[in-house]
Design a protein around this nucleic acid. Structure first.
Lengths: 210, 210
DNA sequence: AAATTGAGCGAACACATGTTCACTGAATGC
DNA sequence: GCATTCAGTGAACATGTGTTCGCTCAATTT
């Protein structure tokens, strides 16, 4: 009942996932990922791959899920930073950029499969991004008292800007990445100001109608 | 001197490009594009491919260039619509969404290769997007009298939002696409308001400092 | 009219791919 | 202690890949 066997199996499963990620980070994307090369790096025979995954696609979807998990951990981190006080915008963007820096392979995977060629993959990634947006909407509604509609508009814009900047950060060196981070922060502040102004306009119109 | 021969060559070259685009739009991206299948669809032998392109990569870069060209044509259209009067934001977003609708394959290619695995490709796409941003900056500076710095911040944010929305539009039906278009317009208005507010803040601080 | 050019072709090569199959041998259940 | 399970294996298969080579034969040049 010690589960020596099960433990070993889990271990090589992790080895496969890790091998796949290593090969992603390099030069080739998921599309050009080879079962045989992954197996080789994981230290098993190509045929043994099928003891762990039915398909290459199943491996791929697993990678996306792992990426999503890491992304949600990031969200939690970010919220902790906010609880400590300080600018929510700066904290979020900084944390996000750190995530991109420390999990390049995973973020690149998410990014590529978001507009990739497998519908299943696209849906999986979209689902992860929607989680991200939903959390942000809740924050804007609960903590900043925005209307749900305006909160959704704003959150969606923020997520689009941040993910897009993250994509650019992948190819950037440390200095350029710093510039990108500051630029993104400034942009989110513009958006926040715009949302605030929009809320005021709506309120004014409301009282004028009374 | 009639150039019957040269004309024929150009014709099959176009056939190759067209064949490649057809196969992109379907289910497979550039990465999984096969020389043999492209040649088959173009109606020539696989070996004849090399009479027109040195590599598959050369074909791919040609596709990106063609996409960029179409994108710049889009920009011109958009400016014409603005000249006719009417909201610049609405005109731009609408034109952009039409482009995505009518050139799905091309836009998907640009999108994929933007975060793809070939550095050459990424640079080519980035260059195209930068053209797009630069035009927008000029407009904001010349027509709206923004400072160059704030104009760049704003233009960059706008391009990020619009491209990201375009990506989502790829998978959407007509109704959802309409919703996306309206959402994007609303978001750009928020950004515009935010930029305006930011400009006012800067001005106030300036005069206070005097 | 003769010589040259060059787009298109068919055969062949060397190779990598995903997947199947019957197998071995250690961990597990009884 | 014996029977069973099952992760890992090596050989083999069928197929698709990019690319080379020498050839044909119509358009072009001389």
């Amino acid at each position: 009942m010690a589960g020596v066997r099960a433990a070993q199996k889990e271990k090589t499963r992790r080895a496969l996932i890790q091998a796949a990620m290593n090969q992603l980070s390099a030069e080739h994307g998921y599309a050009s990922l080879s079962l045989r090369e992954v197996a080789r790096e994981a230290g098993i025979a190509p045929t043994s791959f099928y003891r762990h995954f039915q398909n290459m696609e199943e491996l791929g979807l697993t990678l996306v899920d792992e990426g999503g998990l890491t992304l949600r951990q990031l969200l939690r981190q970010s919220r902790q930073q906010i609880a400590k006080g300080g600018s929510i915008i700066r904290a979020s963007v900084t944390t996000f950029m750190e995530f991109v820096t420390n999990n390049t392979a995973i973020f690149r995977l998410l990014l590529q499969e978001k507009s990739g060629n497998s519908r299943d993959f696209r849906l999986a990634v979209t689902r992860e991004v929607e989680h991200f947006t939903a959390e942000l909407v809740d924050y804007l509604v609960d903590e900043q008292q925005f209307d749900r509609e305006l909160a959704e508009l704003q959150a969606d814009a923020i997520v689009r800007i941040v993910f897009s900047a993250g994509a650019d950060a992948l190819d950037a060196d440390a200095k350029e990445r710093q510039r990108l981070t500051e630029q993104t922060i400034a942009q989110l502040r513009v958006v926040a100001r715009g949302a605030e102004a929009t809320r005021q306009v709506a309120k004014t119109r409301e009282s004028a109608a009374l």
